[in-house]
């Protein structure tokens, strides 16, 4: 494997966003890119990252390899990079280590680190292709604020999507609260758009603790996409350049 990423910062942000949910992960490398899928310990949330080969330049992966990496270790090493550094990831066949080289774009500084790999026997889940009943795009900072605000009142949030808009509501010991968003187009600042694409009304309840955790990815993308269908896990997607993405799935709370 040899993969050069123009911004080491991208991988750093991804790792910062997921390391409180998942600890040891396989980075599955093949000629289409670098993928990661991991569930949290309680099997309620799942992280799915895809960094497509087009996100790298150049990208070369001659044989499929799984790089088992402890994310705390990876975070430590990525913190050694300067924010504008270029990152090259390298691994040999049947590797013991993954090699990270940070290059400064405007100086001759070159730093190099090896991280020891681990054997991770990871469960892989098949996620069915789903036509979601509601697809909502909204500013990622807005979603983060809603989740944090409602978590002050309750452990869980009800997300209801109708043709009127999307309503986030909660009920707790001190009282209740709700935030409703309608479709909204801002020509000057498309990052502020709220788009709601609905085929049928949806109402689901989710744990706010996990949603707040997912929102650590807000720095990766100005917009977040929420995809919902009744009685299936919520998909929270942060789109990255070149069709790469960071996705989170969260199982709903059902019944009483």
């Amino acid at each position: 494997l040899e993969a050069r990423l123009e911004q080491a910062n991208l991988l750093k942000k991804v790792v910062d966003a997921i390391k409180d949910l998942v600890q040891d992960c396989n980075f599955d490398c093949n000629d289409s890119g670098i993928a990661l899928q991991a569930m949290d310990n309680s099997h309620v949330a799942l992280v799915s990252m895809m960094l497509k080969s087009e996100s790298f330049s150049p990208f070369r992966c001659d044989r499929n390899i799984a790089l088992g990496i402890n994310l705390t270790s990876l975070q430590k090493v990525l913190r050694c990079a300067n924010s504008e550094d270029i990152l090259t990831l390298k691994a040999e066949d049947a590797p013991d280590v993954v090699n990270l080289v940070f290059e400064s774009a405007d100086s001759d500084r070159l730093s190099e680190y090896d991280i020891k790999l681990m054997d991770i026997d990871q469960e892989h889940l098949g996620i069915p292709e789903t036509e979601y009943a509601a697809n909502i795009s909204m500013p990622s900072a807005e979603f983060q604020k809603i989740c944090r605000d409602l978590m002050a009142l309750s452990e869980s949030v009800a997300i209801e999507c109708t043709k009127e808009g999307v309503k986030f509501s909660c009920n707790g010991d001190i009282g209740s609260g709700s935030v409703t968003l309608r479709s909204h187009t801002n020509v000057d600042k498309p990052e502020n758009n709220v788009e709601i694409d609905l085929t049928e009304p949806v109402a689901l309840t989710f744990s706010l603790k996990y949603l707040v955790n997912f929102c650590k990815a807000s720095g990766l993308s100005g917009q977040v996409k929420l995809c919902l269908s009744n009685e299936v896990p919520l998909l929270v997607e942060y789109g990255l350049a070149s069709n790469s993405y960071l996705r989170f799935y969260l199982a709903p709370k059902i019944g009483d």
Partner: peptide, 14 residues
Amino acid sequence: APFQKDLYNFFIKS
């Protein structure tokens, strides 16, 4: 309170 399902209820081990 509603019951927290886990992902095995929805996704298949592959």
